[in-house]
Nucleic acid binder design. Structure first.
Lengths: 252, 252
DNA sequence: TAGTGGTCTAGACCACAAA
DNA sequence: TTGTGGTCTAGACCACTAT
């Protein structure tokens, strides 16, 4: 005990700064309000701009702030809950089932990424790739690619001569065909990732922005009949896996 | 003449660097191998150390690298899948049910954080707080606090005179008592957070490290009878919500 | 003690959005 | 054009680990 540890707290400046700013956001700012710019804030707290930015980055990661180049830093609204679990009261269901919150955008035939190819049991084989997106209050919150082997939707007739204009229609045709397949189960994983350039553009973020990557395996006829890779903005989303609707429905 | 750089790709250096390093990790390094130190790497790529660090941070966020102060940067093993969903084949269950993967550590009576208090319907009221932890392969992957109102475990007799030594025992007593309560349903959310100082220590990370925060509401007797806030290391974990076991069991 | 990653500085310039 | 956040530099020192 001899060493009376008087404030030997080597707490980093940016960490302390983050706490101070966080408290200020709670008490002195309203949602949507614009903060002073980074140079002013840094001067006000007597730190370098890089240090101030370290604190802001943390707060943005936690969904407290929103920063936009050329515009400024604003106080972010609370994270929106995004339902990801079993569809409304119906247990598991294929993408594109009635009432699902996604918007179908496009379709192409492509070789899936290696991890997805392994899940589908046929690495390197071209499959249907259906691009979908999801918005909340006009803001994009997620983008998704659903990979479906051609053998799982055998009745599908695609005329390659249709051209690019029919992308969304072809995508919907794949989803319609999927509903015919009896879905046995699904399995989901969630992990942290950083947005690739194309996803970042769709999500209105910069490349590298933190995202929650939800991978869903759809099991039908004893095999993995589809894999959806959904990319959610980590700064604005809270993923919700609700059993409160699904379980009672199954029990009743 | 280095100025053969005709293509003015406004791609940030750190982003390009990250890609280069990522490819190198795939082809030239084995899991656990130590990378050259940051100063050497920066020199080798002809960038400032801060820029190199920006690329390393991204790779660490994606679980590709592990950095430890005083030691070095090593190639991280693939993320471990951590089962978070319905317990093995038994549908929903209380924490502490047989076979659950958590280790009970401690107990105290405390006022929960405001958001948890709201979920429990009684902000500002002291409740049981049970601390648990989870490891995989000897590495800590998650820490959790389960908040349970005293009114939900009325049969529990705690002797305050027991002292601190009985913390784990008191915690287990709370969990035992919970099993008596019929669990109606549960609801989970997942969001990105940054580790507070105490959680960071438990997870063997620095404060501010990215974590996946899983909030579970346990519903019993028509009310929220417990709230668990579980904090998983985002760099090493992939959360797995498996329905493949639970759904068939319920259907049969 | 030596070597590592973590923090911090004080600049500079760039890309972007809005006036 | 102006002002914002985003990128980058070339240093410095600190905290930690292993020897």
């Amino acid at each position: 005990m001899g060493t009376t540890q008087l404030e030997t707290v080597p707490e980093p400046k940016y960490w302390h700064l983050k706490t101070v700013l966080s408290d200020a956001l709670d008490s002195e700012f309203a949602v949507g309000e614009i903060l002073p710019n980074e140079r002013d804030l840094a001067a006000r707290f007597g730190v370098a701009r890089a240090t101030l930015r370290q604190a802001l980055e943390q707060l943005e990661l936690e969904g407290r702030l929103q920063r936009r180049r050329g515009v400024g830093t604003t106080v972010a609204p609370p994270r929106v809950g995004v339902e990801v679990g079993p569809a409304q009261g119906s247990g598991t269901a294929w993408p594109g089932a009635p009432g699902d919150a996604w918007h179908t955008e496009d379709h192409e035939e492509a070789v899936p990424p290696a991890p997805v190819g392994r899940l589908l049991g046929a690495p390197g084989t071209p499959v249907h790739a259906v691009r979908r997106s999801r918005t909340t209050g006009g803001q994009p919150v997620a983008t998704e690619v659903l990979y479906v082997p051609g053998t799982c939707v055998p009745a599908l007739r695609l005329s390659p001569a249709d051209g690019a204009a029919a992308g969304a229609e072809r995508a919907e045709a794949v989803l319609r065909e999927l509903q015919q397949l009896p879905l046995e189960s699904q399995e989901r994983t969630v992990e942290l990732g950083s947005a690739r350039a194309d996803d970042a553009r769709r999500l209105d973020r910069l490349p590298g922005a933190p995202v929650l990557v939800v991978t869903t395996c759809y099991i039908a006829q004893g095999r993995t009949a589809g894999v959806a890779v959904s990319t959610f903005r980590a700064d604005t989303c809270r993923l919700s896996f609700g059993d409160s609707e699904g379980i009672p429905a199954l029990a009743g």
